[in-house]
Nucleic acid binder design. Sequence first.
DNA 1: GATGAATGAGGCTTCATTCAT
DNA 2: AATGAATGAAGCCTCATTCAT
Lengths: 224, 224, 224, 224
Amino acid sequence: MTKRAVKPIDQTKPRWQRQPDARPDQILDAALGVFRAQGFSAARMDDVAKAAGISKGTIYLYFNSKQTLMESLITRAVAPIAQHLNVIAAQAPDGPVTPVLRAMLTFAASNLGQAKASAVPMLVISEAGRFPELARLYRQQVIDIGLGAITGMIKRGINRGEFRKLNPAYAARSMIAPLLMHMVWMNTFVLSEDEPIDLPDMIEQHLDIFLHGAKFRAQPEVSL
Amino acid sequence: MTKRAVKPIDQTKPRWQRQPDARPDQILDAALGVFRAQGFSAARMDDVAKAAGISKGTIYLYFNSKQTLMESLITRAVAPIAQHLNVIAAQAPDGPVTPVLRAMLTFAASNLGQAKASAVPMLVISEAGRFPELARLYRQQVIDIGLGAITGMIKRGINRGEFRKLNPAYAARSMIAPLLMHMVWMNTFVLSEDEPIDLPDMIEQHLDIFLHGAKFRAQPEVSL
Amino acid sequence: MTKRAVKPIDQTKPRWQRQPDARPDQILDAALGVFRAQGFSAARMDDVAKAAGISKGTIYLYFNSKQTLMESLITRAVAPIAQHLNVIAAQAPDGPVTPVLRAMLTFAASNLGQAKASAVPMLVISEAGRFPELARLYRQQVIDIGLGAITGMIKRGINRGEFRKLNPAYAARSMIAPLLMHMVWMNTFVLSEDEPIDLPDMIEQHLDIFLHGAKFRAQPEVSL
Amino acid sequence: MTKRAVKPIDQTKPRWQRQPDARPDQILDAALGVFRAQGFSAARMDDVAKAAGISKGTIYLYFNSKQTLMESLITRAVAPIAQHLNVIAAQAPDGPVTPVLRAMLTFAASNLGQAKASAVPMLVISEAGRFPELARLYRQQVIDIGLGAITGMIKRGINRGEFRKLNPAYAARSMIAPLLMHMVWMNTFVLSEDEPIDLPDMIEQHLDIFLHGAKFRAQPEVSL
DNA sequence: GATGAATGAGGCTTCATTCAT
DNA sequence: AATGAATGAAGCCTCATTCAT
C-alpha cells in the first residue's frame, strides 16, 4: 500500500545489491557531501544514508559511529595528498627555484581549486574545535609537508641569491595564502551573482607579484 | 520554529537589536566563547548560560532561540567593523596609494590578530553551510567594503602608474590573503610547540614583497 | 488542533507541578512496577515515564540512564532491610533460640510476603546475569546479614544443646528456603485458578516441622 | 511480529517440534548458554549464531523468531522431565513413604544440581513476566507433576500414620524448597570466595530434619 | 541449505524550548 | 526579571529479521 509501482520494469531488480567492497568509499563520498552542506553536527546519518543510496543501518556495518565517519573521511583524504607532496618535493631539480615554485603552486591550485578536493580541508577547518586530533593529523600529514617543501625551496632561492634575504616561513605563507583564501571563499562567501574568479589567472598574477617582489634587489628602493 | 511564544521584545525590530541594558552583551559574549570552543551545534544552551553566569531560561528573555543567538552574534560584530572600514576608506588622501594600503593592512592585522576579534569571522566560516544568510550579511557588510576599499586603492595605484596593469580584484586578494590565512591558522592548525608567528613582522614582509612585486616595471623581466 | 478540551474545569491546573523532592521516589516506584511486569530490558523508559505520570525527559533529570535507574532501585531497597535485620539481630535475648528463630522467620515472611517487597529481590534474581555487581551488593547487604543472623542463632542453639549437631549453614537454608520459594512462586508460577497459599500458615507449619526436626534427639531413630 | 515469511518448516506442527536433524538442538544449546549468561532480551542473535558456530541467517531456517527460540528451548526441556517424573510416580511401591520421598528428592537434587539442568528453570523464572505462557507450561508439565507426586506421597504418609496431620501442599514445599533455593543461589548469588555448598550433604541433612519433624508425634511437645 | 550484507523499526538519550514558581 | 524543573521532538545507534548470492 505504501509502495509505488511506478516502473514495473524495475521489479526485476533486487531491492539492493551486495557491494561490500565499494560501500566504504560510497559512504564516505556521501558523508563528505552532506557534512560539507550542513556541517558535521547538523548532518543526520539518515541524510548520509540517503545520499549514499543505502539504509541507515548499513553505514554502521562499515563505520562505528558518526565520529568515526568523520575521522575516516579525513584520514582517507590525507594519505594520497601527503604521498603526492612527497613525490613532488623529491623530484625538485637543482637550479633556479622560481620555476619550481611556480609549478608547485600551479599544481596545488589546479587541485584545491576543485570543490571536492577542498571539501575535506574545509571540514577540518570548520570542525577543528570538535576534532583537534584530526586537525593535528591534517596539519602534520598535509600542511607541514606541503608548506615545508615550499619553505625549503624559498630558502634555497635565498641561498642562491635568487631571492633577497627573507623570513622563509613568512614568505611561504605569503605565497600560498591566496590559495587557502580562495578555498575558504568558494565555500563560504561566494555569491551567485559574483563575477567568477579564474583561479589559474589569479594564481598566475599572484606568482608574478610574489616572485618579483621577493627577488633580489641590488639597491632597495626607498619609501614604499 | 513552529511555535513561538510571545516575548516582551518588540517583534517589529530586527531580532539582533541590542537590548538597552548589559544582559544581551553578556550573553552574546558567553555564546561567542562557547560557540568558538565547541561549534554552534555542539554547544549547549546550558553551557552558554553557565558561561554567562545566569540560568538557561534567562537567555530566552533576551533571545528567541539558539539561532537568534548566533545571528545576533554575527550582526553585532558586523556593525562596528563596517562602520570603521567606511571611515578609513573615506579618509584616504590623494597621492600615492602605497602608504595607504600599508596602513590599511597593518590596521586590519592589528585587529584580526587578536583571538577574540577573529572569533566571529571564524564562526561565519565554520557555519556558513548552516547560515548562508549570515555569511551573505558578513560578506556584504564587512568583506565587500573592506576588500572593496583595498581594490579601489589598488585601482587608483594602477591609474596613477604606481602599479603596473593588474587585475585589481585579484591583487587585493593577493594582498590580504595572509591575514585570512593567519586567522584560520591560529584557530585551526596552530600547535603548542610551534614557533610563534609574529603577525606584524609577517605582514610587514608581505607588504614589502607585494608592493614591490606590484609596482610598475618599465621593462618586464622575462621568464620567472 | 490536537488538544482535547474535555474538562474545562481542569484548565486551571498547571500542566505539571514542580516536585523536585518527590520525583526520585516517584520515578523509582514507577520503574519498579514496570520492570517487574516486563523485565528490565523489555521495559521502555516511555512506560516508566507514563507510569510515573511525567515525561520521559524528566527521568533523566534525576537518573543518568536506565541502568542507573535499576541500580538505584536496588540500592534503595537494600538500605532499610539491612538496617532492620541488624536491629533484630542485636536485640536477640539470651536463652532458647527457638522462639527467636520463630520470630525472625515470621517477620521476614510478613515482609517478603507482600508483592511489592519481593519485587526487588525478584528483579535481582532475574537480572543477575546482566548486573552481577548488583547481585553482589544485594547478597552482601541483605542476604549475608539476614542469613548470617539465622545461622548464628542456629549455632547458638546447637551449642546450648537445643539443637542436635547440624551444619548450621545448611540448616539455615532449610529454614528460610520456603520463603524464597514462595517469593519465586508468587512472581512466576502462580496461576489464577490456584488455591491461594496462606503464607503465615505455611510458615507456621514449616517452623513446626523444622524446629522439631532439628532439635536434640537423645537416641536418633534409625533408617528414615 | 507483523510479517512472517514462509518457512520450509511445516506450519501446522507446533513451532517447537524437534527438527529431524541435529541443527535445531545445536542452536538451542547455543541459545540456552547465551540466554543464561545475558538474559533473553540482552542476548543477540549474532551471539547465538556465533555460539552455535553458524551464521545468523541459518537460525531462521529452523526457528521463526527469537521468541520461538525461547519457546522451543523451554518446551524441549519440559518433555523429558515430565515424562521422567511420571515414570517415577508410577513406580512408587506401597509401604512406608519415607524412603520414597528420600529417593525422590535425592534424584531431583542430583539432577537440578547441575548447572545445565537448572538453566531452563532459571530462564523460566527470569522471563516469566515476558512469557507467562511458558511459565504456565513449565508449571503444568513439570512442577505440578513433580510437586504433585511429592504431595501425594506425603498425603499417603499422613494416611498411614507415618506423618502427623499436616497440610500436604505446604509440607511438600517445605521439603523441596531448599532445592529451588540452591538453584537460584547458584545462578544468582554465589560468589567465587564462598565456601562451596555440597548439595547432597545439604539435602541429606534437610531430609533428616524434615522427615523427623514431620513424623507422627504421640504427644506433641509444648512451646517451641 | 547456508551465508552475511542490508534493512528499518524502535529504544535510549539529549537538549532547545517552555512555563510554574 | 529570573529561575530551573519539565517537556517532547529528534537523533544516534542497535539488532531482529530479510534476502540476494
